[in-house]
Design a protein around this nucleic acid. Structure first.
Lengths: 340, 340
DNA sequence: AGAAAATATGAAAGCGTTTACATAACAAGG
DNA sequence: CCTTGTTATGTAAACGCTTTCATATTTTCT
């Protein structure tokens, strides 16, 4: 094995007796060169084991074949499946995913955005619309296609689900089957417009029945099963005790349900539990979890498709707002309350 | 808002009256310029809203401040937490993660590796050691630090866990408490050395007792809860029926356990279930799942640390093989068998 | 004070591509 | 046969930054 440095276009040009320009064209726009030269150049390239240098290509051409994604966390079944689908779609079209996460910290998100933009991503996908003015300014300045996922404001493309409606649906269902004392375990509301919207949806449903949603009915927690358990513990001290608990994320609802069962409360006869997300495990729990299905994977698919479209279109189309449907999935963790 | 193009070093040079070289130094090696010029340049840079162009920087300097990671799938609690930690550590040191996944397909993995290398990543993290010769050749040729995660062969740095031992531990435990008819639900074995090793570990433990591990005792499945259920269904047809089932991934064990319960088999009194991974939910199931803890997050942390060290060290240190401890976690999904 | 060493800056040559623009060759149209 | 169009190739100028080398300036030492 020789320790020659990597072959470049120049090497191929020299070896093949063609100019570097022709070589470049042969490799990236084969239609522009004659079949036999094309063949000769390709042979040499193969023999030398040429691999294009995308840094140089990016610098010269202005695009990097790279799409940036900023998510709150990688460690979530929801964002994972979105990312998985984005990755699939992007890879299939020759794009790489540059992924950053920020743990729900606006400052970290700003830093991540800065990094991605300075890396010259061709497109950007972000979660939600709530971010400091400075972050939005950076995005504007970059002047590249951007898609907001989950939540999104006017002004940019977006692939969204109605989180408010998700909250509303699940609360409305519990009310409909007779619950009036409802507790809520939700994620940290600050800098998280999805969680805010879900809680607001719940509040709206309660208000329709003239019921308030007091602070004492809500427990704000990190988004883990363990946190769901402790949230449940807190809510169990409400007087009167809630007859149903909504977790604004399945993990919270699952944790809550487990905690209740551990304390000898039977679900759903003693207490109902419902979540939002419809994670994989929800269908398999005992009892299976009533929840609202959020098409996380589709968000990834649609976002990638939209971004790829923007990256190839000639005349900019109108702003897109793709709204994906959510559906209440009634399972066995909810039932009519004992008696009021 | 003007539509000026992005400011470059040249713009700053002109505005500040310094040479572009000095400006470059001021921005990337501040120690080399005098305090007052430094100040002046920084002021101008700030005023112009200068953002360095990493593509150009990468081309000129030869490194991209980017680390490539190739995982089988993003949609797995295990890899998610590894990635999450890598992301955290890398971001803290100014590196971005370029993530690719390949759904356990060697060809896709090769393609992904090619993309990442051609993007000029400064370092690489991959899962496992089993890949086509051609893929290894590409990696060698790139001549950048690489870390194998989970499994790894000699020849490159690695941060590994003993998957064989994981399988062995859980099987040994079941044997110790008296089980002799053991079924296994495992992931696809092809191109997945972790799954292979886990199964081999189980086989080794059985052999110590003179027990075989026949093909009929094994059900190979995708790595999902639903697949675990169907794997369990298959194994229940073994005669005699197994008294314990090992899922070589928690998701499989969980699925299996749920299926058994759905069929009226009580766990663990009627049948024992054990997994490997120790995913979040395992501790909270009913019954809680006996499993082997795999420090997925630590793998991420250690890999990132190792990679970052390699990227800054002067003299290349000796090859590192960091072996992280795994531990059997006995919970309530396992018990002595009824009677032989 | 003079020589040697350290420090701060500038000029310019890349880094490996892409891409106008120019040129040459060749086919078609009158 | 000469003009006009095509088509294939080459020349050279970016792209925005880093970095070597040379130069000018200041400090340190004898």
């Amino acid at each position: 094995m020789s320790f020659r440095r990597k072959p470049t276009l120049n090497d191929i040009a020299r070896e093949s007796g063609h100019s570097i320009a022709t070589v470049s064209r042969a490799l990236s726009q084969p239609a522009l060169v004659q079949p036999d030269t094309l063949q000769r150049i390709r042979d040499v390239a193969l023999r030398l084991g040429y691999v294009p240098n995308r840094k140089a290509r990016a610098l010269a051409s202005g695009h990097s074949d790279t799409i940036g994604v900023v998510v709150p966390t990688l460690n979530s079944p929801i964002f994972s499946s979105t990312l998985q689908e984005m990755q699939r779609a992007c890879a299939a079209n020759g794009y790489q995913l540059l992924i950053a996460s920020h743990e729900y910290d606006p400052a970290s998100e700003a830093a991540a955005l800065g990094q991605l933009l300075s890396h010259g991503v061709d497109g950007l996908a972000v979660v939600g619309a709530e971010r400091p003015q400075a972050s939005w300014a950076m995005i504007e300045a970059a002047n590249i296609p951007i898609v907001q996922m989950w939540e999104g404001r006017e002004g940019h493309d977006r692939v969204i689900v109605d989180s408010f409606q998700a909250g509303y649906l699940v609360a409305r269902y519990l009310l409909d089957i007779g619950h009036t004392r409802i507790g809520v375990i939700c994620g940290r509301l600050q800098s998280n417009d999805r969680q805010q919207a879900r809680v607001n949806g719940i509040r709206a449903a309660l208000q329709e029945e003239g019921l308030p949603l007091a602070r004492t009915q809500i427990s704000e927690q990190p988004l883990t099963i363990a946190a769901g358990r402790s949230g449940c513990t807190t809510l169990l001290e409400m007087v009167p005790r809630p007859s149903a608990i909504i977790g604004t994320a399945d993990l919270l609802a699952i944790g809550g349900m487990i905690e209740a069962q551990a304390r000898g409360i039977s679900v759903p006869s003693g207490m109902s539990f419902a979540g939002i997300d419809n994670v994989d495990v929800a269908a398999h729990l005992s009892p299976s979890l009533t929840t609202v299905d959020i098409p996380a994977a589709s968000i990834g698919t649609e976002t990638a498709a939209l971004l790829l479209r923007r990256l190839t279109e000639r005349a900019p189309e109108a702003e897109a707002a793709i709204r994906l449907p959510i559906t209440l999935v009634v399972r066995h963790s909810t039932a009519r309350p004992d008696r009021p």
